[in-house]
């Protein structure tokens, strides 16, 4: 758990980079610090592992005040990933990954086992990469190693500063999915800086939207999209915010409340999609006019009925207006 209590950062006597932030990140929660550049999101992250000092207030990790902890020890027990991954060019992938365990004095066997486990986790073959150097890897591979390195000593808390920001969009999406799968398995408490609303909605359990060092809204992604607190939040998430929010629901969410229309066998131009499909994709398919009838099939491949705009309108009315 990470607690922020009235945290403030003052530069040069009067500039408030972080202005009285209080919030709590629960154990195993994935929280995105989102905001435009200069909003203080990176500063806030770096205050947690004391790379930036705290001017006022307290930050506590697992109930312990970070200011009272030994900086070096605390950092070794906190995963840290940065945008350009910061792999060390003079060390092999194994040495890079095992740098914290090495500092903690683990024996060779334990380090080797851990390396093998981590590389499998991030989807790289340990023996292929052990003796290679960072420059021989692609950006996506380097970033996977960066993630593995941050998890090396199994820290409960991970701090990630736009870790996937330097990757091209296609690779980024892939690495994001992989990381979500890893997170499902390891359940770390994660603080993740991003400026990308899509990334934030995709990845976060909760999003803290910052502006000028203040938290504008700290909520679940769907709440942020559907019920923005103020004009800044609604502008930042974009005019298509409701459509965006539909990616957080699956067709199944709609089916459980409203059911489906009966499938009409007279219509021949039909298309089948799985019940797990996100509502955003389903809506897009309707808008694209890909077929005259969109048939929803369950996990067994059994047709359940057809999806129409009426049903989607009802669902939106319930979710957005809170009927």
């Amino acid at each position: 758990m990470i607690e922020f209590n009235d945290v403030t950062k003052i530069y040069g006597g009067d500039v408030k980079a972080i202005d009285d932030i209080s919030m709590t990140v629960e154990d195993g929660e994935f929280v995105i610090l989102l905001g435009p550049s200069g909003c203080g999101k990176t500063t806030l992250l770096r205050m947690v592992n004391q790379l930036e000092s705290i001017s006022q207030g307290d930050i506590k990790i697992q109930g312990q005040n970070v200011r009272e902890m030994d900086k070096i020890k605390m950092r070794r027990n906190t995963g840290y990933v940065i945008q350009s991954n910061g792999l060390f060019p003079n060390m092999t992938i194994e040495d890079n990954t095992m740098i914290v365990p090495d500092l903690l004095g683990w024996d060779r066997k334990k380090k080797k086992d851990r390396f093998n486990y981590l590389m499998d986790l991030v989807g790289l073959n340990p023996d292929d990469y052990r003796k290679r150097f960072p420059h021989e890897l692609s950006g996506g591979q380097q970033q996977r190693v960066g993630v593995a390195r941050a998890m090396a000593a199994d820290p409960p808390v991970m701090l990630m500063d736009e870790p996937f920001g330097a990757l091209d969009p296609i690779i980024r999406e892939k690495v994001q999915d992989e990381f979500l799968a890893i997170q499902k398995e390891v359940k770390k408490t994660i603080l993740f800086v991003s400026h990308d609303i899509d990334e934030a909605v995709r990845m976060g359990d909760k999003i803290a939207l910052l502006r000028d060092g203040k938290v504008q809204q700290f909520d679940r992604p769907s709440e942020l999209l559907i019920r923005p607190n103020n004009d800044f939040v609604s502008d930042f998430v974009g005019k298509d915010r409701v459509l965006r929010s539909m990616s957080l629901y699956s067709v199944e969410d709609l089916v459980t409340t409203f059911g489906l229309k009966n499938k009409e066998d007279t219509i021949t131009d039909t298309k089948e999609i799985s019940i797990d499909t996100s509502l955003r994709i389903a809506i897009s398919m309707l808008l694209n006019q890909e077929a005259d009838q969109l048939v929803i099939v369950d996990r067994q491949g059994q047709a359940k009925g057809s999806l129409t705009f009426d049903l989607i309108e009802k669902f939106l009315h319930q979710e957005v207006k809170g009927a």
Partner: peptide
């Protein structure tokens, strides 16, 4: 030596001397 590299090293809990000998001097 790229500042991000020193930053990453520091953030992972290397002492200033370890940053110097393990990262900066080899580079």
């Amino acid at each position: 030596v790229r500042p991000e590299m020193k930053d990453a090293a520091k953030g992972m809990g290397l002492t200033p001397a370890q940053v110097l000998f393990k990262i900066e001097l080899p580079a």
